[in-house]
Design a protein around this nucleic acid. Structure first.
Lengths: 219, 219
DNA sequence: TTCGTTGGTCAACGCTTGTTGGCAAAGGTA
DNA sequence: TACCTTTGCCAACAAGCGTTGACCAACGAA
């Protein structure tokens, strides 16, 4: 009778039923939570700060979302909005995808927040795995030559996309953060394109033991 | 007279002078700190836990490293051990570098820790910027065609390397975490190779408005 | 020996955290 | 009207945090 009916985030993408008087408050909490999680990461985003931003009492957060993790789960429902690639010439999918993700990352800071939380919090990491598997996976399966390879190719794509987001938007490496959109797209598009559509490379490229010459010390 | 002589981490890579009786304790603290920061990130790695791991009192940590941030700074002196590429045929530098970074990331978890902290903590991010600028930068300048482009190329390389480390070692995306070393190298080496040595791509690849067809909803 | 320095423990401080329960006002329904 | 549910605030809790200062034991030089 206690843990019931407390957390009632609508699981359906289109809720629209049973409007409550507190809907605006709930939305305010969620918005503030997204902002704080994005800016500060999971641990430093305190419930008190989120409540302050939302203009309500911290105890309301508990009432509507159960606990901090419940709030995080509710606040991190993310839609990558992967575009349909049916109409795109297959040799352009790399550029289209890179452009899309740059747009997406610049549009709101929820994605940056997802990254911040995913790195330090196991629940956040699980969330990211789900999101990328469910949203990136199908698209990759649709454009890559062998569907059996789709998961691996998706992981490669994710690695480059996330890596760039990390360098540009989170760590703010000066060259990565200041490079122009167009230049970035021109560099990254062929990478994504290859991960998606190229044949599997042979694995013989690896030179035998050229790593760490050992004797050379200083330049 | 108080804030002096408390933090005395030797700034030189080879300390070796003035051995103190407490050196083993200092080393134990540092080792425990590295492990905790790597496993838990900055906020959740508590001084108390680190002290417990090191088998001493929390106040010792304060005495030897001033405060938590000082401890972090001392614990995060990272050497990427970038190999000398002078003897490597320039068309193999991509494979050599990818191999090296995989080795490096698997050898110890300090790099994973650096990533974890860099994402949530500004001091950690600054640290990563320094490390990559100082250690990756010169190497890139040595192998890329136009030295003026070196910083941007280094950022691109860092984005792919960090992205893979993120997906494989931190977020543990199933395909990225389970892919074989050799396959990973075969996929990533050409990317790094191109970022380092290829000519600048033209920026006309970008199709005009193919993003988000808007009318298509469901598959 | 004596004395100053160093290595280390202990107990506590002020503060912030997530979380809880009580209580008052507002709204809806009968 | 009366009653019950919802919405919200307030005050407090137990626990954990980084940090501090007092105090004791061991050492090294005088």
């Amino acid at each position: 009778m206690k843990e019931d009916a407390v957390v009632d985030t609508p699981p359906t993408p289109a809720p629209a039923r049973a409007p409550r008087r507190s809907d605006v408050t709930r939305a305010a909490i969620l918005a503030a939570a997204r902002e704080r999680f994005a800016a500060d990461g999971y641990e430093r985003a305190t419930i008190r700060a989120i409540a302050r931003d939302a203009g309500i009492d911290p105890s309301m957060v508990m009432r509507y979302y159960g606990n901090k993790e419940g709030l995080f789960v509710a606040a991190s429902e993310i839609d990558l909005r992967i575009p349909r690639l049916g109409a795109v010439p297959s040799r352009h999918v790399g550029a289209v995808l890179v452009t899309h993700f740059l747009d997406r990352w610049e549009a709101d800071d929820v994605l940056t927040g997802m990254l911040r939380v995913g790195v330090t919090n196991e629940a956040g990491a699980e969330r990211m795995r789900e999101i990328f598997k469910a949203q990136l996976g199908p698209m990759v399966a649709g454009v890559c030559p062998d569907p059996a390879e789709a998961p691996r190719r998706a992981a490669l794509v994710a690695s480059q996309i996330l890596g760039m987001a990390l360098a540009r938007y989170v760590l703010r490496f000066p060259p990565a953060a200041t490079m122009s959109r167009d230049e970035l797209i021109a560099w990254l598009a062929p990478t994504i394109q290859r991960y998606l559509t190229a044949e599997r490379p042979e694995q013989s490229e690896r030179p035998d033991q050229p790593d760490q010459p050992e004797e050379l010390e200083e330049s």
